[in-house]
């Protein structure tokens, strides 16, 4: 009898714990999922650049600086006054490539749309003055389509558009503020080629999705 009682008590405790933990995990997962809107995943990210808005706009309109800034990972082609075509390659040299149409909507606002990239996506960038003379907030909204399966596979492979967006904003901030994106991947070390390859994987993980 006691034995049976203990069994029921244990079962009860286990069930309550499992349900509790499950709910906590689900809630946490839910909090970390991108918002859904009309079949699009929507992510909003921002970065603060320590330059006035005009200087940030100036950076993108100074063709020479821009070409120098994106050299090695993208080419830009101006279609007309307000639109550009961008072909970008994976900076890590993964061989992936995507094309974006960029449209300038007004001072401090632009949109882009990727048609033939790995994931259909469109986005919007708005420049807002940061408080206390802290420069400019670059606020980006990215919308992308992805089925649940594709999203999971994408995440496993490391192609999370959100991570890409965070990387890009960080890169842009660094280019505007100090003219380069620092990289230590080819710094000397006492590693064998195999160890270096493993370390590069760790570096990639520590670089991806970081925010300044």
């Amino acid at each position: 009898m006691t034995n049976n009682g203990t069994r029921w008590a244990l079962l009860g405790v286990t069930t309550v714990t499992a349900v509790g933990v499950g709910r906590a995990v689900a809630r946490r997962r839910h909090r970390r999922q991108p918002e859904r809107q009309d079949g699009w995943y929507v992510v909003r990210r921002g970065v603060t650049v320590d330059r006035p808005r005009d200087a940030v706009i100036g950076f993108w309109t100074d063709r020479e600086r821009l070409d120098r800034a994106v050299a090695g990972w993208a080419t830009l082609e101006q279609v007309d006054d307000r639109s550009w075509r961008c072909v970008a390659r994976d900076p890590a040299g993964g061989g992936t490539e995507w094309r974006a149409e960029i449209t300038v909507d007004g001072p401090g606002t632009l949109r882009w749309r990727v048609e033939d990239g790995p994931v259909p996506q469109e986005g919007r960038i708005e420049l807002v003055d940061a408080p206390q003379g802290r420069g400019t907030e670059i606020r980006a909204e990215l919308r992308y389509r992805s089925g649940p399966l594709r999203r999971v596979f994408g995440l496993v492979k490391g192609d999370d558009p959100d991570l890409g967006l965070r990387d890009t904003l960080r890169r842009v901030k660094s280019l505007i503020e100090c003219g380069q994106v620092i990289d230590t991947r080819r710094d000397p070390s006492g590693r064998s080629p195999g160890q270096e390859k493993a370390t590069d994987k760790v570096r990639e993980k520590l670089m991806t999705g970081g925010r300044a």
Partner: peptide, 9 residues
């Protein structure tokens, strides 16, 4: 802000 290329850790 810009001198740590591996900020995730």
């Amino acid at each position: 802000d810009n001198s740590n290329p591996q900020p995730v850790f």
